[in-house]
């Protein structure tokens, strides 16, 4: 038996766990090898020292300290336990990167034109059409119902369907700055009733024919940009339909508050 092999058996020897052959070989080696015999004696001394170590008494304030920590960390620990229960395994750099990206995305969204009041966005919620036919621009106050103006080539009777439109806020109340995207701040809201698909297509063709920009927001909601000078022509197109518009001043050909281009939101009912 080699010395290195003999020393690997010391623990089993001390535990009396060697089989007969190993025991015979080791004891024979220890009788022959003074170095290993000394190593074995020291090994036994070390075991004796460790086994005779007295355990130390914990400090008397151990338990009160535990309760103090529990009270101190109560809220934090519950939150942390919740995080741990999610079984996340993110490294700190990865978590920091995600946090930074989230903050950046939030900042960009906040400062983006897409988030401006009345801005046309790919998200229809900014100018949304509800089942009641309302055009909602959430950041604006509703105008009073008496600011509504409804016309109809069928005698100018006010339709019961126009009531919800009274809640629509005219974009003309916004300060007409260069930074306010015209597309997204309709100057005129138009509700066209009893419009079938053919009449919708016809109106759209007329609009395109006049080289006005036409944007389809939903199946029933369109935005049109037209020169203010051609507002009268726009009125003529509308006169072919049963319609209403807001604000009342938009029924006038000179409406526009000095703008050269107007935006009209057209909703088909």
């Amino acid at each position: 038996m080699q010395c290195t092999e003999a020393q690997t058996l010391f623990t089993d020897f001390a535990d009396n766990a060697l089989d007969r052959e190993e025991l015979h070989a080791l004891t024979g080696h220890l009788l022959d090898c003074r170095t290993c015999a000394k190593e074995w004696r020291e090994f036994q001394q070390i075991l004796s020292l460790m086994h005779n170590l007295e355990t130390q008494t914990p400090p008397a304030d151990l338990l009160p300290g535990i309760h103090a920590k529990l009270a101190q960390r109560g809220i934090f620990d519950r939150a942390w336990a919740l995080v741990e229960s999610l079984n996340f395994s993110l490294s700190i750099p990865a978590a920091a990167a995600i946090f930074t990206l989230a903050m950046l995305a939030g900042f960009l969204l906040k400062t983006s034109h897409l988030d401006q009041p009345g801005t046309l966005s790919s998200r229809p919620a900014r100018i949304s059409a509800t089942s009641h036919g309302e055009l909602l621009t959430p950041r604006r106050l509703p105008i009073a119902p008496n600011t509504m103006f409804a016309v109809s080539h069928e005698g100018g009777r006010r339709s019961e369907h126009l009531a919800p439109l009274a809640q629509t806020t005219p974009a003309t109340r916004l300060p007409p700055t260069d930074r306010t995207p015209r597309l997204l701040s309709p100057d005129i809201h138009v509700l066209i009733e009893k419009a079938d698909h053919e009449s919708q297509v016809a109106l759209c063709r007329e609009i395109v024919h006049h080289n006005w920009q036409l944007h389809r927001i939903t199946a029933n909601l369109f935005l049109v940009h037209l020169p203010q000078a051609e507002l009268g022509t726009f009125h003529e197109l509308l006169h072919r339909h049963h319609y209403a518009l807001a604000p009342a001043a938009a029924a006038e050909a000179r409406f526009g508050n000095g703008k050269t281009v107007l935006t009209a939101a057209i909703r088909f009912e």
Binding site: Q56, P58, G65, I66
Partner: peptide, 28 residues
């Protein structure tokens, strides 16, 4: 278990104050 855990902690970090704090954290 405090005696066993305290001595385990003491065996690991040597220093008594650290061992106490560690033991408290373990039971928390």
């Amino acid at each position: 278990y405090q005696r066993k855990i305290y001595n385990l902690a003491l065996g690991y970090v040597k220093q008594e104050d650290e061992a106490k704090d560690l033991t408290q954290d373990i039971f928390v």
